[in-house]
Amino acid sequence: MKHIIYLLVCIMVTVSCTEESKYKTPDEFQYLQKKNAFRVIKISGTNNHWGEFTLTMEYDKEELSNITRTNATNDTVGGIGMIRSTSSITYELQDWIPSIDKDSIQRLETILNEKHGAGNYRLWDSLPKSVQAIERVTVYTNTNGSIKKLSVQSYHPNEKSEAVGEDFAYSYILATTTSSIYEYDVNSNIYINRIMYDVHDPVDKEVYERSLYKMETEYDGGKIKALVWFTAPGGTGFSEFDRYSYTYNGNQLSEIHGTDFTRTFTYSGNQVTVETNHSTVATYELDGDGNVVKMNDGEGNVYTIEYEPGHGNFSHVFVPVSEQMTNPFFIK
């Protein structure tokens, strides 16, 4: 069965690479980068993976140079790694996790408690740790500074991380790879996004299933008028899958509507309520400059965000273009 999957994947990759060779973004147009007046420097909150956390960002000029993640007890438990080449930058969002099982951690804590006494040691500082990528983002740029391609690899913890003894395994597993190739209009807006989405086998990451998509954006002046999604069943021949129409009330986005998708935006003072498909409700609190300073995602997770003056590339690296286009209230 595995060999059959390999054969299918090889066929899909061959077709996809042939198609991808057509997706060239020209360097000839003059790209005008849209710069933010403010950039995020801290995000605090909770989520299912990290629990309570704080992310602190540092910049070198206008690019991310470091992210540090701390937990509820102010232990440093994560960060980023960066790899630069002549044509790309890779940002690796990292978890720092124990490389020993729970039984070993308990034994170590017992030893430290007997040696130093309760409250006189920090268990986290004594644990052997491993750096594991939770997300790896590679940005490829054109010579004019525009983003040509964005590759996002997402990882998740090994199911065996809860095991003990010989069954224990702490290394994270590659789950998906999303590659986006962009084309721009004369106003430096992304108007075509060609997407390859790979779902990796949990045992062998080199085995994966690939789906092809294309997103075309229609503009009316400086506003998005519609997003049109295409799929390519079998790896060739794009066909329209859905169209998302945008409705505005003055300069404010009020609704996005697709075949099986509705998102409404309600404004009240400095708060925006976003309801998706008449069920999930998220709320955003804005400051006087229109930046999101507090967000409740509707699933029990609340985040607070702090900014400083200046342009940064956090949103370009860690906020998907699809989210930026379907929700104007993203973290910059």
Rank of each mutant, 00 (worst) to 15 (best):
I5Q: 15
W124P: 03
L8Q: 10
L93M: 05
T70Q: 06
I195R: 02
Q94T: 12
V292Y: 07
E323M: 10
Y172T: 02
N47K: 12
Q252L: 14
L8R: 09
G234Q: 01
S21C: 06
K42M: 07
Y155A: 02
A226C: 02
N327S: 00
I190G: 10
N296Y: 03
N74K: 15
N187M: 08
C10G: 13
Q324F: 00
E52I: 11
D185G: 01
I111D: 14
L123R: 06
V319G: 04
A133N: 15
Q271K: 07
T276R: 11
D27C: 06
V131Q: 06
A232W: 11
M196Y: 14
P320D: 04
D95Q: 13
D125N: 13
E255R: 14
N270R: 08
Y59F: 13
C17D: 12
G45D: 01
D242C: 06
G45S: 09
S85A: 09
E240R: 00
Y121R: 00
G221V: 09
S21R: 08
V139R: 10
K102P: 09
E166I: 09
E92P: 12
Y121G: 01
A175S: 15
N313R: 06
I97D: 07
S180R: 11
F329C: 09
F38N: 05
M57V: 13
N291V: 00
F261S: 03
I11K: 13
I100F: 12
E28R: 13
K2L: 14
I43N: 08
F38C: 01
G117Q: 00
W124L: 06
T304K: 06
N36I: 03
S99K: 08
P328C: 10
W229A: 12
K160Q: 13
Y267M: 03
T18V: 13
R263E: 01
N36P: 02
L150R: 10
D75W: 14
Y219G: 01
L64G: 10
L123F: 02
S180Y: 13
E166A: 09
G145W: 08
A37Y: 14
I105K: 05
Q106Y: 07
F265E: 01
K205G: 10
T217M: 06
E62T: 03
K149T: 07
F318D: 03
V137M: 05
L108H: 08
F168G: 00
N189P: 07
N291T: 04
E28G: 11
G45C: 07
E166H: 06
A72Y: 05
L7D: 07
L253W: 01
R194G: 00
Y197E: 11
S88C: 06
M12G: 15
Y140W: 09
T138I: 00
Q30S: 10
D287E: 08
D125A: 02
Y23I: 09
Y23R: 11
V40D: 04
K42Y: 07
D60C: 02
D101C: 05
E109M: 13
Q106C: 14
E218V: 10
N113R: 15
Y248K: 04
T247G: 04
E114A: 13
G310K: 05
D75E: 01
P26Q: 04
A232R: 01
L286Y: 05
S254W: 00
Q30W: 14
A175M: 12
S322K: 12
D27L: 04
V137Q: 03
R122G: 14
V199H: 12
Y303W: 10
T54R: 07
S44K: 11
I195S: 05
T138Y: 10
I147Q: 12
Y303T: 05
K225R: 07
K102A: 15
M1A: 08
H278Q: 13
